[in-house]
Computed example of a mutant assay.
Amino acid sequence: MATVRLIYFDGRGLGEGVRFMLAACGIEFTDIMLEERQEYEKLLEDGKLLFKQVPLLEIDGLELVQTSAIVRYIARKGGLYGHSNEESAKIDMFYEGTRDFFSYFLKIGFQDPTEVLERAKSKGLSRYLPIFDQALKKNGTGFLVGSAMSLADVGLIEALLSVTEYFGEDTLSDYPSLKAFNTMMVSQERIAAFLKSPQKKGGNTDAYVATCRKVLELDI
């Protein structure tokens, strides 16, 4: 059994980006699924959740929370964080942009799906698809930064997979650099294996939403 453990829910949410990064870096991990409020309270009592939030990643003797800190640690460990301070800064910039983009899809199931997807289409797609298409075109290597896959690319493919899942692959037809990027990334050996594995989670199900609300006592 892998010694790396990801404690989250049986769904995408903020945990999916962590799963993507672990897979992209070839790091085996075990999913620990929160199902009951008492499990979450036990993590709090044990001092494992510094900011009273999940996901929690246990790796290399560390207990890491805050998703951005987690994925950056994984990226550095796996060599997906650039080869200079300049590249790392650009990777950070693009990665944060992918999080803004992906945030349009996080509330599916927690709010009316039709309204969420309409906002994603009218505001998210129209804003971010041109930005990332031009960035890929300008860099000219197939990747957002440098000539190799980085944290930024993993963040972007996570967002694009939600785009194509909910709106169809034709959505990328007017963005040739993004379309080529999407095809290339899903063909990467580790990414392709992850997408076929049970650790890749489906869309936000009613059961996932109900569990999140119960465990975290959410009022949304």
Rank of each mutant, 00 (worst) to 15 (best):
L151V: 01
T141P: 00
T164Y: 05
G82L: 09
S150N: 03
S162Q: 08
I91H: 06
E217Q: 15
D206R: 07
S197W: 13
F102I: 01
R119V: 01
G78D: 09
G155I: 04
Y208F: 14
Y73S: 12
R12A: 11
V18R: 03
N139R: 11
G61E: 11
L49T: 05
G13F: 10
K42H: 12
G11N: 13
M1P: 06
G26C: 13
L34G: 12
E96H: 14
D170Y: 04
G15D: 11
S103C: 09
K52V: 00
K179L: 12
G155F: 04
L218M: 15
T3D: 15
Y166A: 02
I59T: 02
A180Y: 07
G142L: 07
Y95I: 09
Q188V: 02
V65C: 14
L125E: 09
V4T: 11
E35R: 15
Q111V: 00
Q38T: 14
Q188L: 01
G142P: 06
A152S: 08
V65Y: 09
V71Q: 07
K123C: 12
G78Y: 08
F94W: 15
K48H: 12
Y81N: 13
D10R: 11
F20A: 03
K200I: 08
T30F: 01
D60E: 12
E58F: 03
P55M: 09
K137G: 14
F167P: 05
S68P: 03
A23M: 04
I131A: 10
L14V: 00
G13K: 10
I91G: 03
K138L: 13
T3H: 07
F194Q: 09
I131T: 10
E58N: 02
Y128C: 06
G82A: 10
F105S: 02
L57Y: 11
Q38G: 05
I32E: 09
P55C: 11
L218S: 10
G17N: 13
F94V: 10
S126A: 06
L129N: 05
E41A: 13
V71I: 15
P130Y: 04
A159I: 06
L160M: 11
R127M: 14
F102E: 09
G47N: 04
L14K: 03
L106E: 10
P55W: 09
E63V: 01
K42N: 11
A24W: 00
F94D: 10
L80I: 05
D10E: 13
Y104N: 07
K52Q: 07
E86R: 14
R5D: 08
E165Q: 11
E165K: 10
Q66V: 01
Q199G: 00
G47P: 06
V145H: 03
V116P: 04
F110K: 04
L22W: 00
L161Y: 04
A180P: 02
L50E: 07
D133R: 05
P55G: 10
